[in-house]
C-alpha cells in the first residue's frame, strides 16, 4: 500500500519535471561515459571512471524517482550531491589529477551547474513528498 502511494508521489506533479531533467542528465552522462570508455579511456582513467560512476548513479536515480522507490532515490541523490561537491572541490585543488573534465568537475559547470542544483532539488522533493508516520 505504502509502496503504491510512494510510486505516485515522486513522479507526479512537479516530480514529473524532476524525473525528466534527471532522465536527460542520465542520457547525457551515459553517452559521455560510453564515448570516453570506447575512444580514450587510457588517456585519463581516473576522471573517466568517475564519468562512468556518475552515469550509473544518474540512471539509477532516474529510475528510482520515476517508480517511487524512495530509499534508492534518497541514496543515489545524496551520493550525487556528495559526488559533485567532492569532485568539484578536488578538481579545483588537484588540477593535475583531472587533465580531462568529468561530469562533476568544477561542480558541473560544463552542464550548466545542473549536476550541482539537481540533487538539492531532488532531496527537497523527496522531503516534500515524504509520508509522515
Amino acid at each position: 500500500m505504502s509502496e503504491k502511494a510512494g510510486r505516485a508521489a515522486t513522479s507526479r506533479g512537479f516530480g514529473r519535471v524532476i524525473v525528466f531533467v534527471y532522465g536527460i542528465l542520465a542520457f547525457a552522462a551515459s553517452g559521455r561515459a560510453t564515448f570516453e570508455l570506447t575512444t580514450k579511456f587510457s588517456d585519463a582513467p581516473f576522471p573517466y571512471s568517475l564519468s562512468i560512476l556518475a552515469a550509473v548513479i544518474y540512471v539509477v536515480a532516474t529510475w528510482a524517482l520515476a517508480t517511487g522507490r524512495r530509499r534508492i532515490a534518497l541514496a543515489t541523490v545524496s551520493f550525487e550531491l556528495l559526488g559533485v561537491l567532492a569532485v568539484g572541490l578536488s578538481s579545483l585543488l588537484a588540477t593535475d589529477k583531472f587533465p580531462e573534465a568529468s561530469v562533476w568537475s568544477d561542480f558541473g559547470a560544463g552542464y550548466g551547474w545542473v549536476p550541482l542544483v539537481l540533487p538539492m532539488v531532488g532531496l527537497w522533493w523527496l522531503y516534500r513528498t515524504r509520508r509522515v508516520g
Binding site: R12, G13, G15, R16, V17, F20, I24
Partner: peptide, 19 residues
C-alpha cells in the same frame, strides 16, 4: 517529453515540454 508529460494534465506536464 511528450509521452512523459501526456499523463500529467497540469502545469508540471507543460513544464516537462518546456524543458
Amino acid at each position: 517529453a511528450f509521452l512523459w508529460s501526456a499523463s500529467e494534465k497540469s502545469r508540471s506536464g507543460t513544464a516537462v515540454l518546456l524543458v
